[in-house]
């Protein structure tokens, strides 16, 4: 499976490495052609404002919306902010494809970033690295919660979208990459 990793800004390289380790072909996506060629997409962490700015400038906003509407998408942290229906703190534009409301930097500045050990609803252990992470403040009816931290949903899915507010690419555990590849294969079939 060819995974296109949005490489406008952020830690796209770590995602590429993680997906390669999970057995997928990972490619950096910076142009409309890159987005078209990918079978599934990853929206990585980074600064959502920096990504928004360049996506607009480069005319990639609509191509990205179309690609995300049609293909399996795994979004982490800033990626979750790009996909959310509404964004607060501050209010900003988003693709609005996943029915959640997120608050940016909701835990506060970097000194409040942390590594947490979570358990998914299925009882699987997960190590979650939160970096100036957003919090999902509103959940739409079509969104399923897979894991929570301090009561807040941190890993959710809606149709072909898998969304994490933390960074699975910054651990050595490839559970979520494999879960996403399985999901993408089912969507493709």
């Amino acid at each position: 499976m060819r995974i296109g990793i949005l490489a406008i800004q952020g830690n796209f390289e770590a995602h590429a490495k993680a997906f390669a380790e999970a057995g997928a072909e990972a490619c950096e996506a910076r142009t409309q052609q890159d987005l078209d060629r990918a079978e599934a997409l990853v929206l990585p962490g980074g600064e959502s404002t920096a990504m928004l700015k360049l996506l607009r400038e480069e005319g990639l906003w609509e191509p990205l919306r179309r690609a995300c509407s049609a293909k399996p998408v795994f979004a982490t942290c800033a990626g979750a902010i790009l996909l959310a229906r509404e964004v607060s703190h501050p209010v900003q534009e988003s693709l609005g494809l996943v029915d959640i409301g997120v608050e940016r930097n909701a835990y506060g500045p970097q000194v409040h970033s942390t590594v947490a050990r979570l358990t998914t609803g299925e009882g699987e252990a997960l190590e979650a690295v939160f970096i100036r992470a957003p919090v999902i403040r509103r959940l739409g009816a079509s969104v399923r919660v897979l894991a929570r931290y301090q009561g807040d949903p941190v890993l959710v899915e809606q149709g072909h979208f898998l969304v994490a507010t933390f960074h699975p690419e910054l651990t050595t555990d490839r559970t979520l990459q494999k879960m996403f590849l399985g999901k993408a294969a089912r969507v493709a079939a």
């Binding site: 406008i8 962490g45 980074g46 600064e47 800033a78 970033s113 960074h167």
Partner: peptide, 18 residues
């Protein structure tokens, strides 16, 4: 260590930027 990973984690997020 968790503390060092979180520190480097933010540096990772700044990649490919200015």
């Amino acid at each position: 260590s968790d503390q060092f990973r979180v520190k480097v984690g933010l540096a990772e997020m700044l990649k490919g930027g200015v």
